[in-house]
Amino acid sequence: MWYRAVAAGSFRRYATYRTATVAGVFTNTVFGFIVAYTYIALWTERPHLGGYGRPEALTFVWTAQALLAASALLYGGGIDELQERIRSGDIAVDLCRPADLQLWWLAADLGRAAFQLIGRGVVPLAVGALCFPLALPGDALTWLTFLFSVALGVVVGFALRYLVALASFWLLDGSGLALISGLACMFFSGMVLPLRAFPGALAEVAQLLPWAAILQVPVDVLIGTRTGGSLLRGLAFQAAWGVALLALGRLVQAAATRKVVVQGG
């Protein structure tokens, strides 16, 4: 598949922003400390909140910081770039290629995520592991399963952002929608608080929404909350949302390219 070349190019592209990467690592690490101490206070008050012990809760914090850029938990993930291409009409160039628009951008997003997982993820998690007692697995298989789950989460996140970006074919300004989508992701992925720690029915519902596939499931895989059948169900849950949202994206894409004006001279 030549789309691999797109992913590789995207990886190299993000690698050229060295200063931004260093600044991002610094920010993620600082925030990791702030949130970690907040969680320590919370778990001292409410031990076993959401079924997590303190080491598991802290692992949640540092994994979230490590995945913040790769899984685009708050913002980013190239959504503004695609929106801008649609708004300015540059999308016309993309449509002239013998390529599927969605696969092209998915490949580019996987390349981006791969770089950001390494460039932005490794250091914060290592710092967290050095400074706090984390519940990290000792066996390679769990780590590999975790990476696989992260990849599925990235696909789900991409599929959601792609839908939001496609709305720019109809909306003149998609930045409001992007903001709402970012906030929804922050809240429902478990970035603010693990979804299992949500009260009552909200926890149940939040764990069924697609955002749960982006952070909650991968972290549960890492800290060993999900094993055996629960692990398989978690991965299947991610895969199902990924397939469904990508399929929806294809429908919207077909409608967009058929009906809508490619803007600008």
Binding site: W2, R12, V93
Partner: peptide
Amino acid sequence: FGQRTTLWWDLPLKDSYELVRRM
């Protein structure tokens, strides 16, 4: 399109050609 580019903005020019070759 004179006012738009198909080239990869942040990467060396030859990377874009390599992609064209494979695409």
